[in-house]
Structures are given as structure tokens and as C-alpha cells.
């Protein structure tokens, strides 16, 4: 556990070597500081998901509109590159801190209880609310992420037939057809739906948790905080799942 924490702390150590950064790194290395960074990175990723979903929903406007959107995105060139590096950084930060705080928490408990029960009533999932499933759902999201980059970005999806997406030079440049090819592959549609449900669970606790971490808690507003987090989570998940279902339906018709 200690070795793991030391490895995860390496980026922070390097960052602290930059003149002027040491106090910032020290301040954010505390347990509360790490949670603030997790919340910030988590909410940034939520922001990305909203934009990404808006892009994906253009699939419904047909092949030409979607491919024009994809072409425009790619024409951004270096700006897209920078955005992708930033996105990668957010994921790395979020996952790194998830593992580091989880290791901390495990060490803090020491030996497990022989019997442990909750006193909370409202539970969405067995064995606790969504908050008890953050690591499991997070890992599912990570598996999805790896598959998703292989499928959509590198066009090397496992077992996917990209022939409909090929251009004259034999490259899979037709994004609309590539998306359909991936989502119509049975194993991929199952994996995508399962992992996006995991995302919905993750965010149904994550968004509210991030608000609380940022100190947003007020008896007049808690209703809004709780339910807007929940609704946004399932709106995002529902939106993505609808795309998978749409592609599957298009195959059968």
C-alpha cells in the first residue's frame, strides 16, 4: 500500500520541483485537497461528456451532418490535440487520486468488521448507495474508455468490420459508418450499454458528492443539488445509451 502511494505521489513530487509550485502541491496533497482535485477533475470530465454527447446526438441528423461535424472537429488540428492532452490529464488525475484515496481509506480501516450494517434508509443499490460503488463503476468506465479509444479513434475495435467506413485510399475515414460498425457489433453494444449504466451510477453519486466537496450544502438548496446531480447523471447516460440502441435498431431494420 505504501509503495503504491509513493508511486502515485511521484507526479506531485515532480510538480513540487517547479519553483513556486511547492506550496500549492503541499496544500492540495491533504485528504481534503485531494478530494477537491477529484471533484474538480470529475466535474471537468462531466463537462466533456456533455459536449461529447451533444456531438454524438448529431448522428440522428444523418450521415452528412455527422460527418461534416467530425470533419470540422478534425480540422481544428493542434487545438484538438491540446484539448485531448488536457482530457487525458483530467482522467489521469481523477483515476490517480481515486486509487490513492482508496488506498488511504483501506489503510485507515485496518482490519475489517465481522459484521457491518448501514443506518441509512434510502438505498438505490444493494449493499449501499451509489457511493459504495464508485471504484467498481469507475473501473468499468475505464475499461470502456480503453475499448472506446481503440474502436472510435484508432479504428482498431476488436472484431469490428470497418469496411463500410473505408474511403478510396482504404482508410476508415467515414465516422458515421465507423460508429455504426462498432455499435452494431453485438459484444460491443453489450459492453457499451453495461459501462454507460455504470457511468450513470458513478455520476448519480459523483456530481452531488463534488458539490458537497466544494462546500455547496444548504437546506434550501439541497433538494436542487441532489436531484440535479441525479438527473444530469441519467440524462448523460440515457443520451449515450440511446445512440447505442439507435445503431442496433438501424441494423435490424
Amino acid at each position: 500500500m505504501n509503495a503504491l502511494l509513493r508511486i502515485l505521489g511521484l507526479p506531485a513530487c515532480f510538480l513540487a520541483m517547479i519553483p513556486g509550485m511547492a506550496p500549492v502541491v503541499r496544500a492540495l496533497s491533504s485528504s481534503v485537497g485531494q478530494k477537491l482535485l477529484m471533484a474538480a477533475s470529475g466535474l471537468s470530465l462531466v463537462g466533456f461528456l456533455v459536449v461529447h454527447l451533444a456531438g454524438n446526438l448529431q448522428l440522428y441528423a444523418g450521415e452528412d451532418v455527422f460527418n461534416a461535424y467530425a470533419a470540422k472537429l478534425h480540422s481544428l488540428g493542434p487545438i484538438l490535440g491540446i484539448a485531448e492532452v488536457g482530457l487525458f490529464g483530467m482522467f489521469a488525475l481523477h483515476i490517480g487520486l481515486a486509487v490513492s484515496t482508496a488506498a488511504m481509506n483501506r489503510t485507515a480501516r485496518g482490519s475489517a468488521y465481522a459484521m457491518k450494517q448501514t443506518k441509512q434508509g434510502l438505498f438505490v443499490l444493494p449493499a449501499g448507495g451509489a457511493s459504495n460503488w464508485m471504484m467498481v463503476t469507475g473501473i468499468l468506465i475505464f475499461i470502456f474508455l480503453v475499448s472506446h479509444i481503440l474502436d472510435m479513434k484508432l479504428k482498431k475495435g476488436f472484431g469490428v468490420d470497418y469496411s463500410a467506413a473505408l474511403d478510396a485510399s482504404g482508410e476508415a475515414t467515414n465516422s458515421f459508418q465507423a460508429v455504426k460498425a462498432v455499435l452494431q457489433h453485438p459484444a460491443h453494444s453489450v459492453l457499451y450499454i453495461v459501462c454507460i449504466i455504470a457511468l450513470g451510477i458513478h455520476l448519480s453519486h459523483g456530481i452531488r458528492s463534488a458539490l458537497q466537496t466544494f462546500g455547496l450544502h444548504h437546506r434550501n438548496w439541497n433538494f436542487i443539488f441532489r436531484w440535479s446531480g441525479f438527473l444530469l447523471a441519467w440524462a448523460i447516460a440515457g443520451g449515450f445509451i440511446s445512440v447505442v440502441v439507435w445503431a442496433m435498431a438501424a441494423k435490424n431494420s
Binding site: 478530494k35 484515496t101 450544502h217
Partner: peptide, 24 residues
């Protein structure tokens, strides 16, 4: 001690009913 994941089990278990609003 561990880090807070805003699970609110503490509030449910607290005999003095201290609320997680204080954590915020």
C-alpha cells in the same frame, strides 16, 4: 484517518446527530 466520500453514513451513525452540512 481516511478521506471523505460524502457517503453520509457518519451522520446516520452519530449519536449527537451532527449533520454533514458541517463537513461542507
Amino acid at each position: 484517518f481516511g478521506s471523505c466520500t460524502n457517503t453520509s453514513e457518519c451522520e446516520a451513525a452519530c449519536p449527537a446527530e451532527v449533520s454533514v452540512s458541517h463537513i461542507a
